[in-house]
């Protein structure tokens, strides 16, 4: 066991796999982390026009199933504390 490995407690093959998982998702979709952030902001803006959401807890993830990529959005809605006029 090398010094670095003892320090981090992580085998290098595991780092390789985790790094590749992220790199491949972005290579396959052409979506950089920055582009994903922009997409998230746009999505929040559009959905907020229709329902009240909790923008701080919106999550957008790219997931894979086999060789297929999927964009998964989790958008929590605000409890409707709807004040009636009058």
């Amino acid at each position: 066991m090398g010094f670095f490995e003892r320090l981090t407690g992580k085998k290098s093959a595991r780092s390789a796999k985790e790094r590749l998982q992220l790199v491949l998702i972005h290579d396959r979709t052409d979506l950089t982390p920055t582009a994903l952030d922009t997409l998230k902001d746009d999505l929040i803006a559009v959905i907020s026009r229709h329902v009240e959401i909790d923008p701080a807890n919106v999550r957008i993830d790219l997931t894979r199933e086999g060789r297929e990529q999927r964009l998964v959005a989790d958008i929590p809605l605000r409890p409707t504390t709807r004040r009636r006029a009058n």
Partner: peptide
């Protein structure tokens, strides 16, 4: 190297590429 955890295994590579 695979046994030491310092090389991607066959399963790892398959899991990444899925062919």
């Amino acid at each position: 190297m695979v046994r030491r955890g310092d090389m991607l295994s066959v399963d790892d590579v398959y899991d990444l590429l899925r062919i």
